[in-house]
């Protein structure tokens, strides 16, 4: 029995740490949906953009990938901002489906650009600390996983404070609840939507770097991580930072515990079954309103 409990330590800790990464990956998807009601199917590809960006920076400039975020965050913010301002804003005027189709288009374009620039080969971001681990009793915890979790906490706490305490953040929340009423409060909703997409891009930059440090990625990895982000958002409920964080934890735990009990071949199956059950029983998500 003691042996059984002790053997659970590793998947529990790893699941929670991995959950942090999953939450950051999902954050931008949740934010854009919460504010603009758009399912941005290109979000996974934006995350992979962040991964390739960090890969280029470390390969050609030798700058640490986490440090490279000083460039990556503003860069992906601008890309997100531009996508909303120049593409989505027009698409929203046409119909409900048009922005979704544009998002599919962006996804296809990005994936093909990655293929051309980086070949279909799998890449990874490796640093001096990539292979290092903490030892906690009999449990080995890769440093990268700990960094994932710290980054997740930082992103979540700062995004929450930004949304709650600043005029800009409150304008984003107001616009998400009633866009016309927000305009009557003096809010330029077109600009707010572009800012929201930009912030989603900035979170994708962070997610991309830590994803690249944790897993190998290919030009089409965006889709797999989009599905992970869907899972997080379905579990946690859309549009809430805390819900997204909890959704990430649950997904991470489901994956590591699933692998522990049923073997690693079954881990994604456990995850998908959970998502289906939640969709059937509580479609607004565990923490959704």
């Amino acid at each position: 029995m003691d042996e059984f409990i002790a053997s659970l330590g590793s998947p529990l800790i790893m699941g929670i740490l991995l959950g942090g990464l999953y939450a950051v990956i999902a954050l931008g998807l949740s934010l854009v949906f919460g504010v603009m009601r758009l399912l941005n199917v290109a979000h996974g590809d934006l995350v992979i953009f962040g991964s390739y960006f960090a890969y280029l920076v470390i390969t050609f400039l030798g700058i640490d990938p986490i440090l490279s975020l000083v460039l990556g965050i503003p860069f992906l913010f601008l890309i997100g901002f531009a996508i909303q301002k120049f593409l989505m804003a027009r698409a929203f005027k046409l119909s409900m489906e048009a922005p979704l189709i544009i998002a599919f288009g962006i996804s296809l374009v990005l994936e093909n650009v990655y293929q051309i620039m980086f070949s279909p080969m799998s890449r990874g971001i490796s640093t001096s600390y990539s292979m290092e681990s903490f030892v906690l009793g009999r449990i080995y915890i890769p440093i990268v996983y700990v960094l994932n979790f710290i980054a997740a906490l930082l992103v979540m706490v700062s995004l929450h404070a930004f949304l709650k305490r600043t005029y800009l953040g409150q304008a984003i929340i107001a616009a998400s609840q009633d866009a016309v009423a927000a305009q009557l409060k003096g809010i330029n909703t077109a600009r707010i939507f572009a800012m929201t997409f930009g912030i989603a891009g900035a979170t994708a930059a962070v997610a991309g770097v830590f994803l690249g440090l944790t897993f190998p990625f290919t030009p089409i990895s965006g889709i797999s991580f989009l599905i992970v982000a869907f899972g997080v958002v379905i579990l946690g409920g859309l549009g809430s930072v805390l819900g997204t964080f909890m959704g990430g934890m649950i997904l991470g735990l489901a994956q590591t515990l699933g692998a522990h009990f049923f073997g690693s071949a079954a881990q994604m199956l456990i995850l998908d079954i959970m998502v289906l059950v939640i969709l059937a029983v509580r479609p607004q998500g565990l923490f959704g309103r």
């Binding site: 409150q170 929340i173 609840q177 009633d178 009423a181 009557l184 409060k185 309103r289």
Partner: peptide, 26 residues
């Protein structure tokens, strides 16, 4: 010029204070 629209279009998930504060956005 500030309008109070019909149908009491509040921001339902914000607090009373936040609903008031967003009024001073300009």
């Amino acid at each position: 010029i500030s309008q109070v629209p019909e149908g009491r279009r509040i921001f339902p998930d914000m607090t009373v204070f936040e609903n008031l504060r967003i009024g001073s956005y300009s």
